[in-house]
């Protein structure tokens, strides 16, 4: 596991610089935009893309074939990618937090909106949910073939979500919980989704041939 994490770290250092710069700029912009949700979501999505990038390089270089010959259990090989994903998302969270503090310290004239931090946490949960959906597809189909399935799945989820939202709006059933309840609920939901996703990914990986 340690070796795999190290490998991903080196590959990230080599190829992830542009991603990192992009994320830094976008995350900073978050604090100066009227509607920051989009920017936060983009930042979080970047971490999903970075994991995909790492796995794409593995496929291209056939590292995944070699990894199948390592004395490493399939569970560990899969878990490593979940850890990398969470580390990247966590790093994003920390970056946004630091920038939030930075803005508070260096730009005291700018009124800080604490709901922005709550939004960041919520987007972190959305990010984890996306990882929970994407990683089993990546392990099942590989990076190239999973793209089309992911698009279909995201379209279906958004379609169903919008339909349910519309129905709820019409029937005046709204979520009236506090932010803390929403974020906690989202966090618990995403952790459960990730755990289920991990099991699916392990099963998918074990079915793959290299």
């Amino acid at each position: 596991m340690k070796g795999l994490l190290r490998k991903d770290w080196y590959v990230f250092l080599k190829y992830g610089k542009l991603f990192s710069l992009f994320i830094f700029v976008y995350s900073f912009l978050t604090f100066f935009m009227d509607n920051p949700t989009f920017y936060i979501l983009i930042c979080m999505l970047m971490s999903v893309l970075m994991v995909k990038m790492l796995m794409a390089y593995e496929e291209q270089e056939k590292w995944d074939s070699l990894a199948a010959c390592f004395p490493i259990r399939p569970e560990q090989l899969v878990l490593e990618k979940y850890l990398v994903s969470l580390l990247l998302s966590g790093a994003m969270l920390v970056l946004l937090g630091i920038e939030f503090l930075g803005v508070a310290v260096f730009l005291p004239q700018k009124a800080l909106d604490f709901s922005l931090l709550q939004m960041v946490f919520l987007m972190f949960c959305v990010n984890m949910l996306m990882l929970a959906v994407e990683l089993p597809l990546l392990f099942w189909f590989g990076v190239n073939r999973s793209r089309i399935w992911l698009m279909i799945l995201v379209a279906a989820v958004f379609g169903i979500g919008s339909a349910i939202g519309a129905v709820l709006q019409e029937t005046y059933v709204f979520w009236r919980g506090s932010w803390i309840t929403t974020v906690t609920g989202g966090f618990v939901l995403s952790v459960i989704a990730l755990l289920l996703s991990l099991r699916l990914s392990v099963a998918a990986y074990k079915k793959r041939e290299f």
């Binding site: 340690k2 070796g3 190290r6 080196y10 080599k14 190829y15 270089e61 074939s65």
Partner: peptide, 24 residues
């Protein structure tokens, strides 16, 4: 394997560290 499957962007020293973390 029939193709050397190491990551293209790593050096031999980095690969040594990676494999050192894989094989006991």
């Amino acid at each position: 394997l029939d193709e050397a499957c190491f990551p293209a962007g790593l050096t031999a020293v980095q690969m040594e560290r990676v494999l050192g973390g894989i094989y006991k």
